[in-house]
């Protein structure tokens, strides 16, 4: 059994007067892939964005409860979100490479954190990150072309390379394959499988097949509540809750 990396207790999220998450309590294990599934609007993305405090960007969003990362509380005004986010990478639903070159996209994180000293170090980080994201072969001859010139799947892998360039502990993925075709999806899924040896991954997905393929543990959200959580195999073969059963067999959602 792996160590617990992220632990949430009674997390409530309100958008204005509307409550989006109700008392979510979930442990996320180190170096595993945790999938969050559930119908649209059930709060799984909101939950994901609590972990790296991206909900701070939304003025009306209020988060309470407790979330610890490496046993340190992060729901507090004293937490430095910039350093928190430097150890939690994020990949978004729609690939969002910066309008810069491929090289600059990957180099962005290391540069802003000021962790590289020489140009050769930076080049090495960029190369190794692109390699781990499985993109190096395809782009090594055109590192100085804009990142936006890549195909959708390549752009998403570029975003993954960008996230791992700062060597985070955790990677959050918010429906990373929803804008991609099946082949690009398969590539990303293989990549996720490989990345879990080094990183803790939390992935929000609409596709139950994807959750079943890539994750070790799964959490099922419904109407802002975490209905059931457990080993992926168990959730998909023998769920305890009736709603989970209904969702995975396609009766609703």
């Amino acid at each position: 059994m792996n160590n617990v990396k992220v632990s949430t207790k009674n997390v409530n999220v309100h958008y204005g007067t509307k409550q989006a998450l109700h008392r979510v309590t979930l442990d996320i294990n180190e170096k595993e892939v945790t999938a969050l599934i559930g119908p649209s609007g059930c709060g799984k993305s909101t939950f994901l964005r609590c972990i790296n405090r991206m909900n701070d960007l939304i003025d009306i969003c209020k988060v309470d409860g407790s979330i610890t990362v490496d046993n340190e509380e992060i729901i507090s005004d004293e937490v430095d979100v910039v350093s928190l986010r430097s150890k939690i990478g994020m990949v978004f639903q729609k690939p969002n490479p910066f309008p810069k070159s491929i090289f600059d996209n990957v180099a962005y994180g290391p540069t802003i954190h000021g962790i590289v000293e020489t140009k050769t170090d930076l080049e090495e980080i960029v190369h190794s990150s692109l390699k781990r994201a499985g993109l190096l072969k395809e782009v090594k001859d055109r590192l100085h072309e804009p990142g936006t010139s890549l195909s959708g799947g390549q752009q998403q892998r570029l975003c993954i390379a960008r996230a791992i360039a700062v060597n985070p502990d955790i990677i959050l993925m918010d429906e990373p394959c929803s804008a991609l075709d099946p082949i690009a999806t398969a590539t990303i899924e293989e990549l996720i499988d490989e990345l879990k040896n080094k990183y803790t991954i939390v992935i929000v997905t609409h596709s139950m097949q994807q959750a079943a393929r890539v994750s070790q543990r799964t959490g099922f959200f419904h109407l802002g509540e975490l209905v059931e959580t457990g080993e992926t195999q168990k959730i998909f073969t023998n769920p305890e809750n009736e709603k989970t059963q209904g969702y995975i067999t396609g009766r609703f959602g």
């Binding site: 986010r85 990478g89 910066f98 994180g109």
Partner: peptide, 15 residues
């Protein structure tokens, strides 16, 4: 400017 660009940067730990 698309908010996704800003979100991407902030999620990278940009101030």
């Amino acid at each position: 400017v698309p908010p996704s660009i800003k979100e991407g940067a902030l999620a990278m730990g940009a101030s």
